[in-house]
Nucleic acid binder design. Structure first.
Lengths: 265, 265
DNA sequence: TCTACCATTGAACAGTGTTCGTCGAAACGT
DNA sequence: ACGTTTCGACGAACACTGTTCAATGGTAGA
């Protein structure tokens, strides 16, 4: 949008201000942060396919080539955007009694961050989550899993499972969102209704299960679908905890047989 | 490059050949199938980033615009390539006794297909797996899950879980493959060794778990990592089967001691 | 005030997906 | 056998893309 505090600095600095060591520059200096900000603005407005260096430059009112003084390539810019995903995103200290809820909370937060910017999941999916800035996150995830009693082999795989599920789910969501957009259907419930109707119209002898479950497969709100998938993974992980570990007991120990209370979406 | 079998057919057909109803055409006709073939050739040789309409046209020795007579856009071409993934790919009839092994086999086959062509996972990931040709696949997946005794809500989510895991895992694999390629490291074990060494070199007080599990996180062969993730999901799914369903019981019912101790409900 | 620096510029290059008017060679009707 | 019609391939063009580079201008230090 418009640069904040611009009007105050656009006027030439009066001579007596020159005494100050560093007079405010006439133009707000181009920094990596401002570039990333602009990139996010373009992303939200135009989507990933239209996110181009030229658009970002235009957003800043600057020549394209100016960006390359602060960023070596578009790929690096995307990396910087990706890094922002994790600002202030972390896990509390491991609590074996509540590890499932801790992981769920972490995943919910992660999904919310991915949804906060249009097509963000596509950017996230395309980078490997092992950059140095993320090492503390991986470390703490491992801490939680090990404290819960997961065998090392399983703990080592659990982080990847979780991040794959997170990115994959969000990616899928954003794809449907895009499809809705270009189908020019106003709302998601409307698109959903059309799809369910389509599945119901299939020949019953060839697609009995699809007909039965159509309404469930295309959930009204993705939140409960997300929670269910999360639960499936967590139950699977818990099943590897050797007996004798407090609350992390596997199997049907989890109360509420079929419809476990899905936490607030 | 040069058209094959050109010299034999470039000469004008002698008059007596005209008697044949359909003389062999001077040029092999351009069909959608040949275009998809060529696209796969380019994909395997150049990778997804260099897969362009012009490259495909060049592969066929044809003008770019000629492709658009058979395909409305590059996106449709990618769709056609995606559709090939499922040729002859299917599940056997549901067998509640062996549903886990059936699903595993299906997933293994799926992963093999994704790995058969370079960057195929990137194409697969970017399309929603609900095109009409795939409906029978979804139907049969649902059949297996329901026969196994999964509650409808869970069965409806299970297919998505599986395909997200499949695509996500293969996508990640192809990203590492690409990274290895551009890092100009000869072999995967070599890259792996370097990464493990890097993790081991981290400050032990800040990254104890990462150090411990580095060698496990970056598995020597991805096969066992894939199987483990698959098992986690299947165990999670199985935990939703209400008691009283033959072999589909959660817990150690599945023979093949993966990690011994886990309590049955 | 002069100079040296360096962020910014505009133009250019080699690509991309897609469109369009033209053309040539088969296919058809006579 | 000969027009004529039809249709697919062609080449050029358009509006983009990421990236590079010599030239430039304003700022900071001497």
């Amino acid at each position: 949008m418009t640069e904040p505090a611009h009007d105050a600095e656009a006027v030439p600095a009066p001579p007596w201000e020159r005494a100050r060591r560093r007079a405010a520059p006439v133009r707000v200096p181009l920094t990596l942060d401002r570039i990333v900000d602009a990139a996010y603005t373009v992303l939200d407005r135009e989507g990933y396919d239209r996110l181009s260096m030229r658009q970002v430059a235009a957003e800043l009112g600057v020549a394209v080539s100016a960006l390359y003084a602060h960023v070596t390539s578009k790929d690096e810019l995307l990396d910087r955007m990706y890094a922002r995903l994790f600002d202030g995103h972390g896990l509390p200290d491991p609590d074996p009694e509540r590890w499932r809820e801790q992981i769920k909370q972490y995943a919910r937060d992660g999904r919310a961050r991915l949804r906060a910017h249009r097509d963000m999941a596509r950017i996230s999916m395309a980078r490997v989550p092992m950059t140095p800035e993320l090492l503390p996150h991986i470390e703490q995830l491992l801490a939680v899993f090990r404290a819960a009693g997961l065998p090392d082999r399983v703990a080592a795989a659990a982080g990847d499972m979780l991040s794959t599920y997170l990115d994959g789910f969000a990616y899928e969501e954003s794809m449907w969102e895009e499809r809705r957009r270009e189908a020019e259907v106003a709302s998601w419930p409307e698109l959903r209704a059309g799809m369910v109707e389509y599945f119901q119209s299939l020949p019953p002898d060839r697609f009995p299960h699809l007909r039965d479950l159509a309404a469930m497969m295309i959930a009204e709100n993705n939140d409960s679908r997300f929670e269910l998938g999360l639960d499936i993974i967590l139950r699977g992980l818990a099943s590897y905890i050797p007996p004798g570990h407090g609350t992390g007991e596997p199997g049907p120990a989890e109360r509420g047989g079929d419809d476990p209370g899905q936490a607030t979406g």
